[in-house]
Amino acid sequence: MSVMALTKKILQAALFYEIWDAMKVTFRHMLHRPMTFQYPREHRTIPDAHRGALGLLRYDDGQERCVGCDLCEAACPSHCIKVISAEDVTRPLQRYASEFYIDITKCVFCGYCVEACPVNALAMTKMYEYSTHDKRSLLFDKNRLYDIGERHLEDGKKYLYAHNQEKNVEESREYRYYFPQSVAKATQSAPKHLK
């Protein structure tokens, strides 16, 4: 080691050179805008794909999408969904969920139920602020879920588009069969006795 280098090293050690080096970085950051934001007053922009609280959706004509097939229950890795279905007395052959529960305390927000749903009745929304003092209110029932779905309908739809569950085009809402209940129009018209 040359004398120069040695001197420099001693000097650096004596002057706590590395601290000045680091302080330089620190002071430079004083000129930056802060990275943080004040949460309750400011909110993050949540991306469309975000997996938030689940909601049940309706078709544009107000008809419940869910046909109570219970596939979400089968798909759920944390067994937090319970569906009880029944036949809709007003529409023969039409099955619907008479009761639908999601225990949101158990939910792992994996989105499998949405992926499983054969009619895209479920969607995840951007809703994440539902903390409560009463744990019992976190068992979302059918009304609550439809309510979430209604209030966050746009989010829900965007979620479905983002995750390739539905295409944002007219054709995607057409169904070949009368079953499940068609949204806009069925490509094969239903016979008279079913109308």
Binding site: I46, P47, A49, H50, R51, V108, F109, C110, G111, M124, Y159, A162, H163
Partner: peptide, 12 residues
Amino acid sequence: FDELCGARLTTS
């Protein structure tokens, strides 16, 4: 990640 899959940590 959030934008990619919908969650920041529990990605699946």
